[in-house]
Write a protein that binds this DNA or RNA. Structure first.
Lengths: 103, 103
DNA sequence: TCGATGCGTCGGGAAAGATTGACGCGTCGG
DNA sequence: CCGACGCGTCAATCTTTCCCGACGCATCGA
């Protein structure tokens, strides 16, 4: 059903597809032009993104336009947030200070 | 050398390992206790995290303690940021307003 | 109506990932 | 000094992912 969002983002092709969709909906062939891949491969990647809820397809004529559906990315953001203080220097200093205060 | 960070996060076991390391450094056996997996499997997952720079190992006696090294997660955060306005309603409205203001 | 176009899907093969049992190495306690 | 402990690594196996060529379906232009 809805595949793992993290798994969907694991592939660089799929990440670039999402980046390409930020500017607006695009057709499959248009998206496939971004890569040196065969069209079936891109189509499969789009299917993975779709099963992760990251993309919505709108058939228009004989083209099929894909729309960015960024809502599931919030899950990644939520997972990432608790780690933020560990890579941000200033917040890290603050948190270490707090760790000293509360033993 | 440094494996893809997104690829490292694709596996739920590895994500839970990083979560478990937020509280502080832990030994391999301790971490393996979090799962119903064999110790070698967990050890390999830790190797993947290490090759992604997400973890640092500190040999202490016959134990080996793993420390969280969250810096590479900033790459994920950076990638995620341009999408934020697409899933956050309020920020989306704001950014669309800004887009109108600055042509 | 007919040929061309744009797509998704299926089958197969190659590559990568995940898990296990067995083994070897260094470390600690007695 | 020795047996037990905690680990990492290796070979082998199984699953998943990735990619392609071929095919079929629907749509558009003439």
């Amino acid at each position: 059903m809805s595949t793992d969002v993290f798994g969907a983002l694991a592939n660089p092709v799929r990440r670039r597809l999402l980046e390409g969709l930020r500017a607006g909906p695009r057709s499959t062939g248009d998206l496939a032009g971004m890569f040196e891949l065969g069209r079936p491969a891109v189509s499969e990647h789009l299917a993975v993104l779709r099963s992760a809820g990251l993309v919505r397809e709108e058939p228009r004529g004989r083209h099929r336009f894909y729309h960015l559906e960024a809502a599931p990315l919030a899950e990644v953001d939520d997972w990432l947030h608790p780690f933020e203080r560990y890579w941000n220097q200033r917040l890290r200093a603050l948190s270490e200070l707090l760790d000293e205060e509360t033993p």
